[in-house]
Design a protein around this nucleic acid. Structure first.
Lengths: 225, 225
DNA sequence: GCTGATCTTTATAAAATCTTTATACATACG
DNA sequence: CGTATGTATAAAGATTTTATAAAGATCAGC
């Protein structure tokens, strides 16, 4: 599981510092922006998993920033603000804020609300994908694409590729692969493996004669990268 | 658009009365429960769009109620509580609460947070209609049209198609589909599935011999797109 | 109980996939 | 160079999986 990336838009350096320590300490990846303009730009470039937005920015009203972000940004936006007026809260929530916390906030509560927001993001699209160069594997949907073009794999071909991807970089012995894909008792049928590796290469390698993803480790097995 | 239905679980009659007036006045349909037991039962029977849950119930801890509800209830649950201790808030949010408001709360803010939660519900769950090329499915009215022409589906056929549409793009295994449509214990009856897929294709595919919407993933299951 | 609709079960042909065989290529080593 | 070992690939054969029709069973409404 990768770290969730949080974009922090706040003009006060002390607050940014404080939150940075808090969030990094809780295993999030944090990126910073000090102004509205910078914040929107970073949101567009990084597409973070969650945005913490201070309403009191120097160059633009936080409500405007929120509206602008919501034109395209669909993940969680939590508002942090010294403003605790009801109208501010209502405006922000109705503009698409996920949550609204007033400063000073309790750090434990902030973390819990971040977890809650991230959790809801996730359930929406839980496609665990693997990417390596031109190759992309979606394990849940069982879709494999090469340069964006979908490739049709049979059951065994897909299982084999998924095994390779899970053990990326390692050398997998013939015996190990045969045991995992075909089961115990097939560990001497290396010819099966050769046939299926050849078929896989034909489907996923740009140039099957000089395989890039699945390389042969003669006498041992295969390596995927 | 139908009125959203809100289940209010609170033992204090005055609060229920107050909230009822507020919510009905804002065009929600409201149902009441005074105890944890009653609340869970009503949630199961009515499947409301949102639950307002008071933590201070007489018969069971609110945290327990929350956990019990979250075993199956996936829509929004907003906690109302006089407890403003941080640990209560954290526990509730981590148990799956959508939001947490401390009493006394401001009515405008409550309404805004309700709107926010309901909005998220909607985008998350499927919109009431699904469109893909020539095919259109109205989940509420249970009507399916192909090129604007209404198609008559039986109960099981419709359930199957709805399941496919909900999980668009993914491969659904035979077992999963059988469990969802026929229930646990039918997971080996793949022949049922084949028969119904063939019937569905005959009804919704332009060219049933070369199916476009429901494709076969041999040895695994089916994919809808 | 009858009727019509739907679901379940059976039978069989067709398609897809997996297994096996055959053969060619590559590399290392005496 | 010739042989041995390991590998790649095509293609034929065997097996599994799937599509479809159609017969039998079940159920609700009249």
């Amino acid at each position: 599981m990768n770290k969730a990336e949080i974009l922090l838009i706040d003009d006060e350096p002390q607050i940014r510092k404080l939150l940075d320590i808090l969030l990094v300490g809780n295993d999030y990846k944090v990126i910073h922006a000090a102004t509205a303009k910078e914040g929107i730009m970073m949101a567009a470039n990084h597409s973070p998993d969650l945005i913490l937005l201070d309403l009191g920015l120097p160059d633009k009203s936080g409500h405007e920033v929120l509206k602008e972000l919501r034109l395209w940004y669909t993940k969680a936006i939590i508002i942090l603000s010294v403003q605790k007026s009801e109208s501010d809260i209502i405006t922000a929530l109705d503009s698409g804020a996920t949550d609204y916390l007033t400063k000073p906030f309790r750090t434990g509560e902030l973390l819990a609300r971040i977890r809650s927001s991230l959790r809801r993001n996730q359930t929406k699209s839980e496609s665990s994908t693997f990417v390596s160069g031109d190759l992309q594997i979606d394990f849940v949907a069982r879709i494999v694409t090469v340069n964006g073009i979908q490739v049709k794999l049979t059951l065994t071909e897909f299982n084999l590729l998924a095994l390779f991807a899970k053990e990326e970089g390692k050398v997998l012995t013939h015996q190990y692969i045969l045991k995992e894909i075909w089961g115990i008792g097939y560990q001497t049928e290396t010819q099966y493996l050769r046939v299926f590796v050849a078929q896989l290469r034909k489907k996923i390698e740009m140039n099957p004669n000089q395989p890039f993803h699945i390389t042969t480790e003669s006498g041992v097995g295969y390596r995927f990268c």
